[in-house]
């Protein structure tokens, strides 16, 4: 397909989105990421039964933490797609990149050492 997606997105592979923890998302924000999104399998299709559902709950928790700190919760998102949906992957990447561009750089940037 040779689809392209924004080059400013860094992909971190995990065996299952159930592996993604609250601290990973917070650390990304703390280290200066403008946004973080988790791309899990379609709901109901998790190979480990509910890894993607757990990931969504963690994303929801981090959104609440960011809201409490006065940071836009939209900087963290959860998406679900199948590994066969290459076009959707590129679409989500573009969508998230656009959203972050609209929100602007992280409010932590001025002091971020990372």
């Amino acid at each position: 397909m040779r689809l392209s997606y924004p080059a400013d997105i860094k992909v971190i592979q995990v065996p299952c989105t159930g592996r993604v923890d609250i601290i990973h998302l917070l650390n990304a924000i703390e280290d200066g990421a403008d946004g973080v999104y988790v791309a899990g399998c379609l709901e109901g299709e998790c190979h480990y039964r509910e890894g993607n559902l757990k990931a969504r709950r963690k994303v929801t928790y981090v959104k609440k933490v960011l809201t409490d700190l006065g940071i836009e919760p939209e900087r963290v998102e959860m998406y679900n797609l199948s590994s066969a949906q290459g076009a959707r992957f590129a679409e989500i990447a573009n969508e998230m990149a656009e959203k972050i561009k609209t929100l602007g750089p992280t409010p932590l940037a001025k002091d971020s050492a990372a």
Binding site: D21, I23, L26, I29, E30, V65, L66, L69, P107, D111
Partner: peptide, 21 residues
Amino acid sequence: LKEVEVLAATMKIARKKAGNP
């Protein structure tokens, strides 16, 4: 352990945002 990590990260984010790491 988990809650210590999350609290520390949350506080660091808040203070970085406030420009007072």
